[in-house]
Computed example of a mutant assay.
Amino acid sequence: MYPILLFLHSVVRWLVVISLFIAIYKGFRGWRKNLPFTKTDNSARHIAATFSHIQLTIGYLLYFNSPFIAYFRSNFSEAMKQFDLMFFGIIHITLMTISIILITIGSSLAERQETNPAKFRTMTIFYLIALILIFIAIPWPFSPLSARPYLRTF
Score class of each variant (00 low, 15 high):
1 M>T: 12
5 L>P: 00
6 L>D: 01
9 H>A: 08
10 S>P: 14
13 R>I: 13
16 V>I: 11
16 V>M: 06
20 L>N: 08
20 L>I: 15
21 F>R: 00
21 F>A: 08
21 F>Y: 07
24 I>R: 01
25 Y>D: 00
25 Y>A: 08
27 G>E: 06
27 G>Y: 05
29 R>L: 14
29 R>N: 11
30 G>I: 14
30 G>L: 09
31 W>M: 13
32 R>V: 07
33 K>M: 10
34 N>D: 11
37 F>L: 10
38 T>K: 12
39 K>W: 14
42 N>K: 12
43 S>W: 14
45 R>L: 15
46 H>I: 15
47 I>G: 01
48 A>H: 03
48 A>I: 04
51 F>C: 09
53 H>G: 09
54 I>P: 00
54 I>G: 05
57 T>E: 02
58 I>S: 06
59 G>P: 10
60 Y>M: 13
63 Y>V: 12
65 N>C: 02
66 S>Q: 07
66 S>Y: 07
68 F>C: 00
69 I>Q: 07
69 I>S: 10
71 Y>K: 06
72 F>G: 00
72 F>T: 02
73 R>L: 15
74 S>H: 09
77 S>W: 03
77 S>G: 04
79 A>L: 10
80 M>W: 03
80 M>T: 14
86 M>V: 11
90 I>H: 03
91 I>K: 04
91 I>M: 10
92 H>I: 11
95 L>F: 13
96 M>T: 12
96 M>R: 08
102 L>W: 09
102 L>T: 13
104 T>I: 06
105 I>K: 07
105 I>D: 06
108 S>V: 13
108 S>K: 15
109 L>Q: 12
110 A>Q: 06
114 E>R: 13
115 T>I: 13
117 P>D: 08
118 A>W: 04
119 K>Q: 09
119 K>N: 07
120 F>D: 05
120 F>N: 10
122 T>C: 08
123 M>L: 15
123 M>A: 12
125 I>R: 10
126 F>L: 05
126 F>A: 06
129 I>E: 02
129 I>S: 01
130 A>K: 09
133 L>F: 12
134 I>E: 08
136 I>G: 05
136 I>N: 07
139 P>T: 09
141 P>K: 00
142 F>W: 14
143 S>H: 07
144 P>K: 00
144 P>N: 01
147 A>R: 04
147 A>F: 09
148 R>G: 03
150 Y>W: 15
150 Y>F: 15
151 L>M: 11
154 F>A: 12
